[in-house]
Computed example of a mutant assay.
Amino acid sequence: MTYRKLPSATLAVMMATSVATSAFSQDLNVLTWEGYADPSFIDQFQKQSGCTVNATYVGSNDDFAPKLAAGGGVYDLISPSIDVSGLIIDAGFVEPIDTSRIEAWEGIYEKFRKEPGINRDGVIYGMPYSWGAIAFMYRNDAFDTPPTSIAELFDEKHAGKVALWDDKSAIYVAARLNGDMDIYNLSDEQIAAAKARLVEQKPLVRKYWATAGELVDLFAGGEVYISNTWAGYQSSLLAEKDIQVTEFIPEENAEGWMDSWMIVKGRASDCAYKFLNMQITELGQCGVANVNGYSAANKEAARACMSDEQFIALHQDDPDYLDSLLLWKPLGERTEAYTNAWNAVKAQ
């Protein structure tokens, strides 16, 4: 989907509608990623808080703005990544977070609290939640020599066994393979070159996957044996099925991300703040770490609920690990160019 800046008049009508529909109840509707409202920890929250959580899942960051534009008043909380959170703030879809109501706020890594993508003129619009890498993953039984490069996904010998996330970040992958490493500031010519590379790859691709479960099924069924992946999550689901896979950061590097919870305009209920407080303390932080394999934004909570081995494995002792990756950045006015290029690849 393509994100376009909405006219101020349209935004005014939408925000009025959102506020008008915000008669609060104990129901809490969240628009989020798989695993962020998992019963393993959400059930306990519901029992303790009296709030009922209803989750709608997205498969791409490009899903948030269109769903909010189509009727943001039905959602209370969203959890976009750092590359689109700024767009959502600028569109007026979310409201500032009262950090004084977040008891564990100071426990969040300072580098995340100060991220430009959730800050505007000294006002904070997002509560950092989790972070990690968009790594690559392969089935161990399909490779005699472990792959080390993105080029493996473009090699004809893997025809029909390749998958790729159905997201505009596919442009980032192809651009790096082309040697264009400034992936968030690509020129029109570089985007066109990435698009051409993806079109060339398309006959090799078994599936552009949209959800974690979809990729897991493809790997488990032997339909696919190499893809990019949400590091830590799909590999853990495959381990439960006794499918041996390995994640790797290729020589062309990998993208990094950080997700934050944001309050939809006019939806700052008591349940919303109870939910935020749960998600940034031990229950929510180790909840997402145990379900998704993602790193936690609150180091203090992570230390309290993780084993030493898990703490180190998730880089909780080294948040600068994220700096070694290509942390997602807002594309601004260039969003449309990237998204249109990816849609054009799929339309071929």
Rank of each mutant, 00 (worst) to 15 (best):
N119E: 07
M278V: 11
K5Q: 14
V123F: 03
A231T: 12
T10F: 06
D76T: 02
T10I: 10
E300K: 15
S79F: 00
Q310L: 14
I249A: 10
G72D: 13
R197T: 13
A20R: 10
I171Y: 12
L31Q: 13
V13T: 09
I82K: 11
V58K: 08
I118T: 07
A301P: 07
S18P: 00
M137Y: 08
K299T: 06
L327I: 13
G266N: 10
W257Q: 03
S85I: 03
S235I: 11
Y208N: 03
D83A: 13
N277S: 02
F143P: 12
M181H: 12
A163H: 01
T148C: 00
R197Q: 13
I150L: 11
E95K: 07
A296C: 15
A142L: 02
K265W: 13
D155V: 00
E34Y: 01
Y36E: 10
I89P: 07
N290K: 15
D38V: 02
Y184L: 00
E333C: 02
A151F: 00
A133F: 12
L215W: 02
F41P: 00
D308F: 03
V291Q: 02
L204Q: 10
P250Y: 04
M278H: 08
S81R: 01
M137N: 09
G132H: 05
D63V: 06
I42V: 15
V123Y: 03
Y57L: 12
M15D: 06
S40R: 13
L11T: 15
N61H: 09
K67E: 12
E333F: 10
L198W: 01
Y138R: 04
L198P: 00
V162C: 03
E309Q: 12
V30P: 07
A12H: 05
H315Q: 05
W131G: 09
F154V: 01
D166S: 15
I102G: 07
I97L: 12
S295Q: 09
T211A: 14
E333K: 10
A296K: 08
S22Q: 14
A254V: 14
G132Y: 01
P203N: 05
D317Q: 08
A151D: 11
L31E: 05
Q234W: 01
Q46G: 04
P250S: 06
D121S: 13
L153S: 02
G122Y: 09
C271K: 08
P147C: 11
L327D: 01
I280W: 02
L314S: 03
R139I: 05
Y294Q: 06
Q310V: 14
G71M: 06
A297R: 12
Q310H: 04
T56F: 04
D63N: 11
S25C: 05
G256K: 02
F64I: 06
R101C: 05
